[in-house]
Design a protein around this nucleic acid. Sequence first.
DNA 1: CTGATCTCTTAACCTGCATTAACTATTTTG
DNA 2: CAAAATAGTTAATGCAGGTTAAGAGATCAG
Lengths: 195, 195
Amino acid sequence: MNHNLLLDSIAKHIHLDEEETALFLSFIQPKKVRKKQYLLLEGEVNRFGMFVTSGCLRSYNLDENGFQYIQQFAPEGWWMGDMYSLITQEPGHLYIDALFDSELLLISKTNLERLYKEVPKFNYYFRILAEKSLVSYQTRAMENLRLTAKERYEKFCLRYPTLVDCLSQKQVAAYIGVTPEFLSKMLHSEPELKP
Amino acid sequence: MNHNLLLDSIAKHIHLDEEETALFLSFIQPKKVRKKQYLLLEGEVNRFGMFVTSGCLRSYNLDENGFQYIQQFAPEGWWMGDMYSLITQEPGHLYIDALFDSELLLISKTNLERLYKEVPKFNYYFRILAEKSLVSYQTRAMENLRLTAKERYEKFCLRYPTLVDCLSQKQVAAYIGVTPEFLSKMLHSEPELKP
DNA sequence: CTGATCTCTTAACCTGCATTAACTATTTTG
DNA sequence: CAAAATAGTTAATGCAGGTTAAGAGATCAG
């Protein structure tokens, strides 16, 4: 299994010696999933932090009409999880599944807590990640009120240029919060939006 | 000045001995602000984390039409800042001002970095805060797409019961992302929403 | 106390996006 | 490879919430 992507991501923020690296790796387990396979269902407790080494995961809410609202795409090099459920160990509200065949590295909540205790500088690493992620959700929360569907689509293309051309329009629509019908209409009536 | 509120907030998550407490307090400076006074303008670098010991702050974006979108209210016991600017020390996009006369405790970016170095367990404290805040912005980002104005208003009343009756309708409208005219109409046509 | 500045209300009209439905193109599965 | 399922297109209709405007209370500053 390929741990390098994960170790590199960590090395950008903290230095681990050999012993710490070995301990960390002993806490990690690999997992392969096929396209469409679920990793978490609404109402379940999220017991693993998931790091994507290949492929792409997706997390979303379902509303009462069965409409999907995508919270996050996690391509290669990203962490994924239901933060609420992972923190509280209460049942969460997210579904997590794989958009393509994917390879993951999992760390259980138990091992994560052990890691914080035995290698406290992981508090630094995950503090930095949480802060960056916080900024991007703050921005998105405001943009979801302030911007039109067209503007949200443009931001999405700028922010995720690699994703936008491997995802179906339906997925993009569920991320920016419009119906697939409206996105289709928008792309045809405003040709400058197309790649 | 009253540091107790802040020390209590910290004590809920980490234990500081006397020396650490003294060092922390030496990094903190008090500040009083009057109603409507600005603490940060769009385009400025945010050089202080701000903890509110009395009163209430507010952070917001302005769009090109001068419409305000409120990101956060910070009553007593809350931290406030422009996270993006505080992390990067680049010019930010938020205005921060006081809704009422308020008392604050400030920690400069420089002292915050010293604090992380000299008392590493502050990484734990601020990681926990960042993670909780992250969860609430993830939720809000999704709700801003998924919920109607009426539902957003109801959530706001549930989540900030003390705020809702000391704020003007205009402030609440700018938080839930509707015009004051529409909120007024909603409250009159749906009497069950009123307190 | 008074004019000026805000906040709230009401109402007419407008628009961005949802809904529904029917059809076509593409992908998945047996 | 055929059948079924899924994704995308187009168009008619509807509605949540915006815009504009104008007046009525409030609150504030001189």
